[in-house]
């Protein structure tokens, strides 16, 4: 199963600031009543983007200047809470291809990597610099360079960090593990036969 090698993501960015943005905020549970992920993009950040009467609230994603952004900027502990893959799926279906934050909750990070969405950690000061450049000129092209672990924008370059196993998986087109896992089938059977609770 050949997968795309994700060595860089280039595009416009939008900043959704804040720490501890949880997956309930990214996609409220009531929109998880679905048997496919297809329509989830429409409900991304729903409760902070919409008033009870369905009209828009002030939110970066409702700001026409940032329409079409493919890179999301945020704060610390992004994606905490529920393990729902609906959250990264909603981000991806909405159009996001990469996320830059101070750091990420564990399960969310793994879920994103498996979908081919790189999650990069950067310092708060650097994220603020990118956000400031984007706020000034929303057309600024931001380049997430996984080969060099850096982010370039408006003539500037900042360092970015991503766990080596995830980086390796993305740049080599191995981010979806299923192919690798299926190859190990014989060993799995042998190992299972050795474990008492699986051999009965």
């Amino acid at each position: 199963m050949p997968l795309e090698k994700i060595t860089s993501v280039a595009g416009r960015a939008v900043s959704v600031p804040g720490n501890d943005i949880d997956t309930d905020r990214i996609i409220p549970a009531r929109f998880m009543k679905c048997v496919t992920f297809d329509g989830l993009g429409a409900f991304l950040f729903h409760d902070v983007r919409k008033n009870a009467d369905g009209t828009d609230r002030a939110h970066p994603l409702n700001d026409p200047r940032f329409k079409g952004a493919t890179i999301l900027l945020s704060g610390a502990n992004f994606g905490c809470g529920s393990s729902r893959e609906h959250a990264p799926q909603a981000l991806q279906k909405y159009g996001f291809r990469a996320i830059v934050a101070e750091n990420f909750a564990e399960i969310f990070f793994g879920n994103c990597t498996t979908l081919g969405i790189p999650c990069l950690g950067a310092s708060r000061a650097d994220i603020q610099r990118i956000a400031a450049a984007v706020a000034q000129n929303p057309a600024t092209e931001v380049v997430i360079d996984l080969a060099h672990s850096e982010i370039r924008f408006g003539g500037q370059t900042v360092k970015a960090a991503i766990r080596e196993s995830a980086r390796e998986a993305l740049v080599n087109g191995r981010w979806d593990a299923i192919g690798d896992l299926l190859e190990g089938a014989d060993r799995v059977k042998k190992l299972a036969a050795r474990l008492p609770y699986l051999s009965v």
């Binding site: 593990a177 190990g184 799995v188």
Partner: peptide, 12 residues
């Protein structure tokens, strides 16, 4: 089960 190419573990 084994160590995968990306350094992760394939865990049963």
């Amino acid at each position: 089960v084994r160590t995968l190419a990306n350094g992760q573990t394939q865990l049963l």
